[in-house]
Design a protein around this nucleic acid. Structure first.
Lengths: 192, 192, 192, 192
DNA sequence: AGTTAAGCGAGACGGTACGTCGTGTCTTGTG
DNA sequence: CACAAGACACGACGTACCGTCTCGCTTAACT
């Protein structure tokens, strides 16, 4: 057994969830910056000491709340670049439409500027979204749907970038219509 | 006379600039939220009272600092979409390379989530970058360089989005090479 | 059987002593107020729960620790006031020289100000020292070594008080020399 | 001028007094150990930061409150040991009867065990009481009221010790009667 | 030239939240 | 059952920051 032989009272299973839930709720109401740990503890019906026993700082906590909202994106080969992209972006749109994650992404980005571990977590989030897309474009290159010597990294940037841009800066709607118009740009060669 | 007959010692001209500069520098280093007014006063070699005499709150100050850092992008008709885009992106790259505003961007986005006036300032920043680009694509549409019924807003998103994405999330380099590869995607029909 | 039919694991006999010893040691080092129950448990190599199973509070425990440190003073009639006092003060000096109780005395006094049961324990300590001395002076009065109508309580105060004073406030040495010089004052009538 | 050229807003004169007063009041009610700095700040209508700006710790504060309560004891030569002692002890009794200082003496003693600066302050308190007494006994030795080679330090201990003992340990009344009975012991040779 | 109103640096102040620590209770697994 | 380990609720600690305030000094414009 590699188990470290659990001793002492085990950590309550309810605490984790209660705190993360309350954190998302409270952060949504007053903003992450103005979220008070005392108020958070009160809402989650938990003591501050218990919170700090599990998370070393407010940022760590928020980070964890966010991590819990990251769901992977699956990559299925539909046989065509167009189909693959449609499928992928459909999922991206769904992720952006559910608000839980997105309100905190800005904060996560901000925190990552000065905290290596948060930066690592953010990199995870980025990778989860880039990876399947790389697969899609590699298959497309093999098929001949796109130039064999196209810069796939730039293609990926051009595909995801506009979503991030809309979410963070223009706050324009991110929906199926936007996705399809974007696909028309990136994969213009509609099969006849 | 609209002047209210100024009396007493006039406000120092250096104070305003020193504070705004220090604010940008400090906000870039530690973030808007963690920027302390005491530290700011120390850096700008100014007293806190003097700061609050001019700006009613930290938010107001940050807002003003940001406004001062936004430099306009000029739009000159080069006669071709390709040329216009090259020219425009060259300036965008330059803006991203010079750190003043960009270091604060992550913090600005976060702050905008919960502060309307900062959001307005952020919108300004966005508008300054979108406006000339809209002109470029409208001219291109008139010329016939792009489809007349193309969705220009989406084109703009697809042009600027990748830069923002690289800056905030992937931290990959933003340079002339990236810009040119991106142009190849958005304006693929290079006129022979 | 008056025993309530003990079931389960019997209480370890070592625990009680270990805790009381550690309590005296720790209280002597950092004071009763700053003595932490966690640290105490660590020193005594005992769990906090075990401590609280036996003592209802920190105060109760300290109280008990103190009680265990009070050793009685025996009173033997040597036939003369001078002899009795010499004998008595010899023991007092010995008690003050051994550190166990004395390091805690300052803390005990402080705690007694606001805790009735600690006050009671302190009264015990005081009584143990006063009682034999009262016997000594009563015998001396019967013998005629001192005035028959002398105020014995004040005599006792005058005998013990200086020791306490040196211990707590002046930190001057408490030894046989001090004791003998004191006796010369209180029982000046050296038998010819 | 050796003055350090006062700059900035001067410290409020009311704060010091308000805090010290509230501290003595609160300490008297719940005890020094259980005196909460938050509550103290509330009572004195002062912010916690202001308190900690002036006193580095709770002990320093209490110490200062005590120091403010130490009033010197004047030593006037009445011409006889008996008269000098009566006069001196009258003042001692008065000091012990006014509660301000005495409720805190126990805590002061306790704190002095682990804090050099508090110990120094306690030494001051002790010196203020010993010094005039030493003068009294030296004059008495010169007059011949007491043995020329008597140990004056021990005499002082025997004079003050009983007061301290009563105050801290027996809690018996400290009044003129006690003082006079004590004088009868220490200065028994009443001049006819 | 003297007065006056405002700007300014310094720093004290009332609040509010922080992250830590200590007490006494509790909940596990092991003897 | 007792016990070790340690999580937990509660509450105080001492610190940091914000926005306000009060000083003494400086700087022009107005008398």
């Amino acid at each position: 057994m590699t188990e470290p032989a659990k001793r002492g009272r085990p950590r309550s299973e309810q605490v984790g969830g209660a705190v993360l839930t309350a954190a998302l709720e409270l952060a949504g109401e007053v903003g992450i910056a103005k979220m008070s740990m005392d108020e958070l503890a009160r809402r989650a019906d938990v003591s501050k000491a218990t919170i700090y026993r599990r998370w070393s700082s407010k940022e760590e906590l928020v980070l964890d709340a966010l991590r819990s909202a990251i769901s992977p994106i699956d990559d299925v080969d539909t046989g065509s670049l167009r189909g693959d992209l449609d499928r992928f972006l459909e999922q991206i749109v769904a992720r952006f439409e559910q608000s839980s994650m997105n309100d905190v992404l800005p904060h996560l980005i901000e925190a990552a500027c000065h905290d290596r571990s948060i930066q690592a977590s953010l990199d995870d989030w980025v990778r989860v979204r880039r990876l399947p897309l790389r697969g899609i474009y590699e298959r497309a290159a093999q098929r001949g749907d796109i130039d064999a010597d196209a810069d796939i990294e730039v293609l990926i940037d051009a595909t995801i970038g506009p979503f991030v841009y809309r979410r963070l800066l223009t706050r324009q709607p991110i929906d199926a219509g936007f996705a399809s118009r974007l696909v028309a740009l990136v994969a213009p060669a509609a099969p006849s």
